[in-house]
Design a protein around this nucleic acid. Structure first.
Lengths: 194, 194
DNA sequence: TCGGTACCGTACCGATCGGTACGCTACCGA
DNA sequence: TCGGTAGCGTACCGATCGGTACGGTACCGA
């Protein structure tokens, strides 16, 4: 029997990057197949062969977005004190949602509007995972003694993820990176060390 | 010449309320005329006669939403100290985005995803106006001496509006009112009085 | 050389999109 | 009673939606 077949005529990763950009700008529902195929530079059947349907393409795009644009989260978690973690997280987020040459805001926030049924629960799940990682880090900070013992790690994690989510929306409203960073400074007052 | 004509067969305000609810749940793009007319209980031409087109209907719905569901903003601004203003603002917002029997989140945030062109600039404008009102209130608070002179009114206002915007998204993620209120407590630490 | 496989894209599917033409009806003032 | 007005809804418009059937092509191993 034969194997292989005709090779692909395009780079799947490059096409996926174009899909990320398109979903990022318009959200899920407002992005049409015509716009996607034009941005990705491939025909419609090629898109379906390579990525499944629109929703699967979106999920692949979201995964790639997270891998490429949310590394600041893992970076932040490696900092040595709770306050530094918080600062790195907010600063990294402010930068990510206001990167010149890229759409404003966060794909994971932009795309979530539609469909109350759980089709996009993974967007919320994405935030929930980050929240839990932050909380675990703050639990350790309490043990390490670099966080005021009166603080609630869960509440601090929620505080940060809520603020970061707000950053994403405010960035699309036109807020500048400097303005977001000023807000971040404001929030860091909650992370005074003991 | 005659005047008047056949009277309306429905209550415009009740129909508009249904439109508010529908846009609130799905955002602008994802809401179709079929869904709107069914929720509003009127035929498609009746909708167009009464409200213009879909975008005009949305703007009317947004106005009504603000009138009915964002009165907590004006309420908050009447409080006697900066900290009380901030607390009332965040508490009112947390309640508004988690009201039982109503959609989660905020129409003005839910609806903004679409169309980078300025068609929905009024959503951002809505937030900007609130931000300016808060800032002016904090300027007065500085004059009144109920705010630490080292604080920046503009930054505090941005801080609050950003957090409130985050509340809206987090509420649709499933965050409870109590969880949001805990975050609000966290934020209020920035409003210590002198 | 040839069968098998997986890519290619044109040309199409039914459904739904936002929006409207048009014949009809209920109320007004004259 | 009757002309003018503004409401009513059925039935339709072209465009676009997400998705695919199908004939053709480039590569594999045998």
């Amino acid at each position: 029997m034969g194997a292989g077949g005709r090779p692909r005529g395009f780079e799947p990763e490059a096409a996926l990057d174009a899909a990320v950009d398109t979903f990022w700008r318009h959200g899920y529902e407002a992005t049409g197949l015509a716009e996607l195929t034009e941005a990705m530079g491939i025909s419609r059947p090629a898109l379906y062969r390579a990525f499944g349907d629109k929703e699967q393409l979106f999920q692949a795009a979201l995964k790639r977005y997270v891998d490429l644009n949310m590394s600041y989260v893992s970076d932040a978690l490696t900092r040595s004190t709770a306050r530094e973690v918080a600062q790195a997280f907010l600063t990294g987020n402010a930068a990510a949602v206001t990167t010149p040459g890229r759409p404003r805001g966060c794909l994971s926030v932009q795309a979530m509007v539609t469909d109350e049924a759980g089709a996009f629960a993974l967007l919320a799940e994405n935030r929930r995972v980050i929240q839990l990682r932050l909380r675990d880090r703050f639990v350790r900070a309490l043990e390490d003694g670099d966080l005021d013992p009166g603080q609630d790690p869960d509440r601090l994690a929620r505080f940060l993820i809520t603020l970061a989510t707000g950053f994403a929306i405010r960035a699309t409203d036109g807020e500048t990176r400097e303005e977001l960073l000023a807000v971040a400074d404001c929030a860091l007052e909650a992370f005074a060390q003991p």
